[in-house]
């Protein structure tokens, strides 16, 4: 799984840090999204995808990277 942030779009709503706290955080000063883990383990994939979908500003893009051993999810 690859995660790309578009921090210029971030509005600091905190949906990502709330939904996938193992993957996303918010900067303490400006409140914008911070990526904690660029290659989250499969256990975090579902939450990371949900967080991307919930982001009100479309500031998170999650793509399924074709890594050896990674399972493809529909």
């Amino acid at each position: 799984m690859d995660i790309t942030l578009h921090r210029d779009r971030c509005v600091g709503a905190g949906m990502c840090a709330l939904t996938a706290p193992g993957v996303f955080d918010q900067d303490d000063e400006d409140g914008r999204v911070v990526l904690l883990d660029t290659k989250p383990s499969p256990a975090h994939h579902a939450a990371a995808r949900l967080a991307a979908g919930l982001c009100p500003a479309a500031a998170i893009t999650v793509t399924a990277a074709r890594e050896p051993g990674s399972s493809s999810t529909p």
């Binding site: 600091g12 709503a13 905190g14 706290p21 900067d27 303490d28 409140g31 914008r32």
Partner: peptide, 13 residues
Amino acid sequence: YRRLLMGKFTVRR
């Protein structure tokens, strides 16, 4: 405005 404020209302804070 939003940028000035959003750091004050984070999940952690």
